[in-house]
Amino acid sequence: MKKKVGSFFHHLLLIILVVIWLIPILWLVVTAFSGYPGINKTHFFPETWTISNFTTLFLKPDSVVQYGRWFSNTLIIAIFTCIISTVFVLMVSYAFSCMRFKGRKTLMSLSLILNMFPGVLSMIAVYFVLKSLGLTNSHLGMIIVYSAGSGLGYLIVKGFMDTVPVSLREAARLEGASELQIFTKIMLPICKPIIVYQVINSFLLPWGDFVFAKLMLNSGISKDYTVAIGLYNMLDRSLVNQYFSIFCAGGFIVSIPISILFIIMQKFYVEGVTGGSVKG
């Protein structure tokens, strides 16, 4: 009996916590269906319900809302960013984890320190570097911004590779495999969980960034935007009273695929991220 009471309070506490964590999300979802376009400050639930916010997003693009375009822009950027940065990170991690060469430690610590430099600071210089390459206002430029420096974020993947027994590689070497073959045929399959983690992580980056995107995509032409700047833009002083519920609808839609990815990633997060540190 005592156990049951304990269990009841245990779960009650969990429910309370989950409610705290989900209230803002619930507000997002219900506001997405609100008939009042501005910010509802007196009632949690909307007074009138509608799905017109969603139809505006997809069926009635205007100069402010080009959701379909934003979504496909972001998707393209995200796919390429994800491919390039995953490849970069894997390459750097393999070099640092499985190979021994002069200056390795120096390079590793140097990259760690570089990775600590606040991106916000060098943003304007990055902009002018890209401008001199003629890549501002282009999706290619955005892909470069998101993926070019990704090699610096090798730490977690390298940690995982460190836990792979060296004997596997030794055996392959004895059979005459080159490093390239060891990398592609042996290491990559073992690293599957951490690759999934890396893929999803880098895929998510363009969906959430508005600082760089706002600076780089500065033509003011709505159909060039990514989801993040498009949505951020709706909260402009002159727009927020007409677009807040559409903003919520847009936020809700973009969260669906991301939630699914996160739920898939959950397993790999636990296995991959901590795998390296625990097993080691």
């Binding site: 402010v64 902009y127 401008k131 501002t136 600076l215 033509s219 003011g220 709505s222 402009d236 002159s238």
Partner: peptide, 23 residues
């Protein structure tokens, strides 16, 4: 002629960030 959207209230922020690229 391409038309972009930028609120008049903070046009300055975007124009001055890079005058050469401004409309």
């Amino acid at each position: 002629i391409t038309l972009g959207a930028k609120s008049e209230a903070d046009a300055k922020d975007d124009v001055l960030a890079d005058v050469e690229a401004a409309p």
